[in-house]
């Protein structure tokens, strides 16, 4: 599973992307966030403000209940500010 981070989420985690293999009990985005948060203090800091974080699964916006599977491309980022 490839995980991408953008904007201040990337700055806090400390890397722009990483390859991870969460255990089988991680089934959705909420579970993945909980599992990633334990990886490092940077991850914990990035995900501390969970309400400020948005996500995408395979380049589609997705909510906390969205399923995640091996091989997915997952992204975490702040609310978007384009235009």
């Amino acid at each position: 599973m490839r995980v991408l981070y953008f904007a201040w989420v990337r700055q806090r985690v400390g890397v722009a992307e990483e390859e991870v293999s969460p255990p089988p009990e991680v089934r959705d985005l909420a579970g993945l966030v909980a599992w990633l948060s334990a990886r490092s203090p940077g991850h914990a800091a990035a995900f501390a403000q969970a309400r400020q974080i948005r996500a995408a699964v395979n380049q589609e916006f997705a909510g906390p209940e969205a399923p995640v599977r091996a091989g997915d491309e997952i992204a975490f980022f702040p609310p978007v500010t384009g235009g």
Binding site: A75, F77, P78, V80, T81, G82
Partner: peptide, 8 residues
């Protein structure tokens, strides 16, 4: 574009 495109 302001709310639906992934730019920061």
């Amino acid at each position: 574009l302001k709310t639906g495109a992934p730019f920061w």
